[in-house]
């Protein structure tokens, strides 16, 4: 069908709506990363050797399956090589929290408890304790 033709049926309308919705979702994601859950998987030599890939794949696939809007990216070494794979999670409006020794089972717990409910789980690396 010619793109220049207008919206003639309910189906056209629906199609247009879907197009727009898809576009808005993508734009929102790109422009407001602060409003999303950010997941950074440490992917340097130490992380890779400890299985960071499986953890990253788990986050990418499961966050999507569980309909959580999140940006999953990779980062370099955060200096906690002893605790790899490490993952830094930033909930909107919160300080980042780093979890160590993450495997798919731990990642599942992090998604269910911390990302969904904001409840802290075991395995946090105290990197940003403020001192007075």
């Amino acid at each position: 069908m010619n793109q220049m033709t207008g919206i003639k049926t309910l189906a056209d309308l629906k199609k247009k709506q879907e197009e727009v919705r898809a576009r808005i979702n993508l734009r929102d994601k790109a422009e407001n990363p602060e409003s999303l859950v950010q997941v950074k998987v440490a992917m340097a030599t130490c992380g890779i050797a400890s299985g960071a890939k499986e953890v990253m794949e788990f986050f990418v696939e499961e966050l999507d399956k569980r309909s959580i809007d999140a940006v999953v990216t990779q980062t370099g070494c955060m200096g906690y090589c002893f605790a790899e794979p490490t993952v830094e999670i930033t909930l909107p409006g919160r300080e980042p929290v780093v979890f160590g020794y993450v495997n798919p089972a731990k990642a599942d717990e992090i998604i269910e408890c911390y990302i969904k409910d904001g409840e802290l789980v075991d395995g946090i690396i105290p990197q940003n304790y403020d001192t007075i």
Binding site: K53, M56, E57, V60, V72, T73, Q74
Partner: peptide, 13 residues
């Protein structure tokens, strides 16, 4: 798993 790592690279960057 070249395919697995490559798709992650594309997705994350």
């Amino acid at each position: 798993d070249i395919a697995g790592y490559l798709t992650l690279l594309l997705k994350a960057n």
